[in-house]
Design a protein around this nucleic acid. Structure first.
Lengths: 336, 336
DNA sequence: CCGATTTCCGCAATCGTTCCCGAAAACAAT
DNA sequence: ATTGTTTTCGGGAACGATTGCGGAAATCGG
């Protein structure tokens, strides 16, 4: 169970550990061909595995980047992670992952754990736009680079990668209206998520532009997951709210809504059309497929990776805010 | 950017680092109330963060467990990970994650990386039942505990958690036959995955039991993901193979198949019924929903966590193979 | 063959902790 | 006052690597 160390190798060959260390790293520098050869074969024979912990401690650098997301169960964040990992690995970084489960406290622990293990930078999509504010700031104060993506926070100076939620929501609702829908309800996301507020604003402004009614019961707090969406629509139906379209904060809640509608034998899109922001392959997968504004997740990962690496290289680099173009993909759920 | 260390605190207070270390760990042992108080407030003031790398190196224990899965994009593995993480965290372990992207070489690198960082145990669902065989064995030879789950390997002695693929496949196909289907095709998984072979065997034996034909074209190599399933069914249709039911190796390929069928205006389940093994919430989410044998993923995570912790505590513990009961959930895709 | 240069290698410090051991101090008991 | 016990603390060696420096050996040039 004991791992062999460079000292074991040194003893075995009767040489110093410095030489062993050099042979195992430096490319034929400062060590002769023969001894290097001997060292390598001894390392092989003894099953030597370099202890990265020791290396990190000594070098004072972990080459590790943390990624913190609210959840990993939907493809969006997982796609982001996969792409970011690919890029960062290629650049010689390791990646450690953590999910907050939409819980501020868990997010706090995750961030602290990453600091404990001396990550050199963190990509984060937050689960609350206020609660951990001082923590983000304190990390930045310690010169630990942070890059916010997708769900960002307003009053912190750090690089950010996001889409224009307001505009995209506005366009989506406008599109629903132009397709002939007049009674559009909004499954709103939690008010402590900035994007949710932006999207709600876009929704409201679009209705206003077309002088459509927006009674309070049209905006329901629907949370972020499947069950939340189901419950919200169940509530609407029970209350007798009449509507012919749903605009949802996010994919999952909309999928729950759709499921509920189908259970109640509504026709989609004839009775009720459905559209949402932040769609992934799940929107294609279901039947009818769902019209969605799709975040350019690959590009987000690329930009976020680029930004964090820039910040690690030079902490005083300017804090870019990258706004990416998200595309609306029309599918069966709105095609009349 | 420099982190403060216990030495900094010691200097600040004019005491020794040993005392600081004790105050920061031991609960009021070997250090007086007052000095402890002073140390804690100094640590707070200087923004001390204990360096876990150094601790791990010194203690020769990382309290970290690795989880390696073929992919994380489908809910199955993610659910497993989430539950396992919950349990292991509660027991004081950290978890580091890696996905192999169904690639043997990537899996190898992941495992080696985990060894480099001295994880104390590894939960793994393999992506090939032969290729990394010696690597698994060599880890075990070094007394690094491994627990195989879901996709296991045959001739390695280590704890395993799985379902009875053969029986479950058999039952599923039997059920399709009893629902009146006679021309059942099988979207088989890759032959280098043991489970795929077991399921294929169950499929064949069920057909045989009922004296149904099983021509070669009924068994198509369909891979593991959405696109694979689409392609496979597209091929069947193009070849003019006539079938009235599909039994799939896994959820994702079956979802692809379903999508393809719907594009070709087949009715599900009237024209073609669909069933698969290893279903998750995705099977509920789609329309029509898919009949599936659902692996008890929570229980799998619990058993796997238990087993790895037992092995860490005592490497010579017996190598249990836990076979869990998987339940078939009948849904719209087979309900005539 | 001798001095200069280059190559090769060892010594020892260092990274931030932990923890054993022993010493000093404080307190109690005689 | 002496001895014994307990509490508190510091010294210093680990843990497994890296690396600057200096010295010995080898090589080279003349």
């Amino acid at each position: 169970m004991k791992y062999t160390t460079i000292i074991d190798i040194a003893k075995e060959l009767g040489i110093s550990k410095s030489t062993v260390s050099r042979a195992l790293r430096d490319d034929d520098y400062n060590v002769s061909k023969e001894t290097k050869q001997k060292i390598l074969e001894a390392a092989e024979r003894l099953g030597y595995k370099r202890n990265e912990l020791a290396v990190n401690l000594r070098k004072q650098s972990t080459r590790t980047i943390g990624i913190v997301v609210p959840e990993m169960i939907t493809p969006f964040y997982m796609n982001f992670i996969t792409r970011a990992q690919e890029i960062l690995n290629k650049a010689g970084y390791r990646v450690t992952l953590a999910q907050s489960h939409e819980d501020v406290e868990a997010e706090r622990l995750n961030l602290q754990m990453m600091e404990d293990y001396r990550v050199e930078g963190i990509l984060i999509s937050v689960c609350h736009d206020k609660k951990n504010h001082e923590l983000y700031q304190s990390l930045l104060d310690k010169h630990i680079p942070l890059v916010f993506f997708d769900r960002t926070v307003a009053d912190i100076s750090a690089p950010k990668v996001q889409i224009n939620d307001y505009i995209k929501a506005f366009f989506m609702v406008e599109y629903l209206i132009r397709s002939g829908k007049q009674r559009i309800v909004h499954l709103a996301g939690p008010s402590y998520i900035q994007n949710a507020n932006e999207r709600k604003k876009g929704y409201k402004d679009a209705l206003e532009k077309f002088h459509l009614p927006c009674p309070p019961e049209y905006i329901v707090d629907a949370g972020v997951n499947f069950a939340d969406g189901e419950r919200a629509v169940e509530g609407l139906i029970r209350q007798g709210v009449s509507f012919d379209a749903i605009f949802g904060f996010t994919e999952m809640s909309v999928l729950g809504a759709k499921s509920c509608l189908q259970r109640h034998h509504y026709h989609i899109p004839e009775d009720v059309a459905i559209g949402c922001i932040s769609g992934t392959e799940l929107c294609k997968l279901v039947h009818p497929s769902i019209t969605a504004v799709e975040q350019p997740v690959m590009q987000m990962a690329e930009e976020a990776s680029r930004l964090i690496m820039e910040k690690i290289k030079d902490f005083s680099a300017v804090d870019e805010t990258v706004i990416l173009e998200a595309e609306m993909v029309v599918r069966e759920s709105t095609l009349l």
